[in-house]
Nucleic acid binder design. Sequence first.
DNA 1: CTGATGTCCTGTCGGC
DNA 2: TGCCGACAGGACATCA
Length: 275
Amino acid sequence: MPELPEVETVRLRLSWHCVGRKIVSNCISSAQFRSPLPMDLDLCDRTLRGVDRHGKLLLLGFDDGSHLLIHLGMTGCFLFGSSRDRQPSTHDHLSLEFGDGTYASFNDRRRFGVITYYSSADSEAFSARLDTLGPDALSSSFDAEYLRSRLHTRNAPIKALLMDQQLVAGIGNIYSCESLFRARISPDRPGRSLSLSEADELIVAIKSTLWRSIALGGATLDDYRGRIGEMGTFDQEFTVFGRGGQPCPGCTCRAGIVQTRCAGRVTYHCPERQH
DNA sequence: CTGATGTCCTGTCGGC
DNA sequence: TGCCGACAGGACATCA
């Protein structure tokens, strides 16, 4: 369940390990993927020019104008190392070998991830794909006015709306729970019921939570424990997520953190503190 | 358009 | 101990 901070951590590692390097071979797994890459895709002789991110999407740009768009899904991660020592895994779906003897491979056990290739001729489709997403949660255009303007007609719970990537890109189950707790807003509140000042507090809570997590390298969850490349410690600072039944860290209420379901997702909040 | 529900996939965990 | 079903997650399709 990598969300914005985890994806940003992966982006930084990809930039560090791969940008400026030329691909000398690539290998695509034949295992069925949700959106299979063409098996004959040949990235040889291309140099990775940069790695960008929008929400939870990684955008790998090559020197010939082509792109790989990667969503990590739940269990997607990148493994790096020396090609000589590489031990291919059954869950490697794409691996890139570079001219300097290093490799990067995309590994995804549950295959919820998505990799899409866009040639330089597909730039319109590439832009169209990105246009389906709302502003990145850390961008300046994601502010209280924008949030209110998008919420004022919506009756769905604010938690579900925060996870809607068309409204704002990058927030998932963990950071919606954590941000709503910090903003003292109940996850069940209809989107339209938020005042401008509440929207403002929510924006501040979301951005500060995301930045704090990035500073700690993201959160490491059970699915990732022990995995190379996922070593963040923000999970140790979770206030509510995964803490059902524990005392509320923000008040002295008797009930403590409550686990419920909101919009089909496990949700954690403090009914005393969040309204 | 909106919101709810089902689907994909696999590893883990609880119950029998 | 061993097996089976339920469940978790994000995005997307489909339905009312």
